[in-house]
């Protein structure tokens, strides 16, 4: 829970972003406290993935302010933002087809001490150990997701951006991912989660930021979610 006394780890203020000529984010503002799990909710095309990509410095044109641990990152290239301790699990998982599982795991450089060791990751996701010499894309969707999360845990980043980690996965795998996120939270990781699966989001998050057409339209603490259900249904069309 945000405790109000510590400064937020991330403060997004008036973020605008463009894909080529098209303006896609319009003054997005929100913040994330240390140790908090925040979801971005919204329909397809609401700008959730774009927001994550903008935070990672992956959009060519951004304006506004993104304060990460006190550092203004709006003008920084992606590699510098990653080095500040922001770890990214992209949509569709971003597993490299021409790399083995192990090569995928070791691709992101360590950016801070205290990352999970290879053994710890295999302990968390035993399937990966068996398949460590397979090509990344020979894994099942669930295994790919585990690899994508394990890959970023190895780097020592303590602030994670997860883009739809449960998309297209079997319920038993979704459960395992949920346990993993809860474990990360218990270890003090801060997480921004983009989710379509609302039940999953409600089970792991502290707070929900609702987006529509490139704007933040609402923020709902998880403990008020029951009272806000009607509002949420309207936003999400569920």
């Amino acid at each position: 829970m945000p405790d109000g006394t510590r400064p937020p780890r991330l403060t997004v203020d008036g973020l605008n972003a463009w894909y080529g000529p098209s303006h896609v984010l319009f003054g997005v503002s929100f913040d994330v406290a240390p140790g908090e799990v925040v979801t971005l909710l919204g329909r397809n095309g609401a700008g959730k993935t774009t927001t994550l990509r903008a935070l990672m410095g992956m959009l060519p044109k951004r304006m506004g302010s993104i304060l990460f641990d006190g550092v203004e990152t709006i003008g920084l290239p992606g590699r510098r933002i990653a080095r500040l301790g922001m770890g990214y699990v992209p949509e569709e998982r971003g597993i490299f087809a021409s790399l083995s599982v192990r090569e995928n795991l070791f691709l992101p450089p360590e950016i801070a001490p205290g990352g999970a060791s290879e053994e710890e990751i295999y302990g968390l996701f035993p399937n990966l150990r068996e398949r460590r010499f397979s090509r990344g894309t020979q894994l099942s969707g669930g295994e790919q997701q585990m690899l994508a999360i394990g890959r970023i845990m190895r780097t020592g980043a303590r602030f994670l951006l997860l883009d739809e980690p449960t998309e297209g996965l079997a319920p038993v795998i979704v459960e395992q991912i949920g346990r993993t996120i809860a474990a990360l939270k218990a270890q003090g990781f801060t997480v921004i989660l983009v989710e379509q699966n609302f039940r999953f989001a409600a089970a792991v998050a502290d707070r929900h930021v609702v987006m529509e057409t490139g704007r933040v339209v609402d923020t709902i603490p998880n403990d008020q979610i029951g009272a806000s259900m009607g509002r949420l249904r309207g936003y999400l069309g569920i």
């Binding site: 990672m56 410095g57 992606g78 590699r79 990653a82 990214y88 992209p90 691709l107 450089p109 780097t155």
Partner: peptide
């Protein structure tokens, strides 16, 4: 090698490799 796997990854998806903190 490690540098080789970075190279192959950058051939596939340079944007993501950059977002992992590598100077593409």
């Amino acid at each position: 090698t490690r540098i080789g796997s970075t190279l192959r990854a950058a051939q596939e998806n340079p944007g993501l490799v950059e977002a992992f903190g590598i100077n593409v």
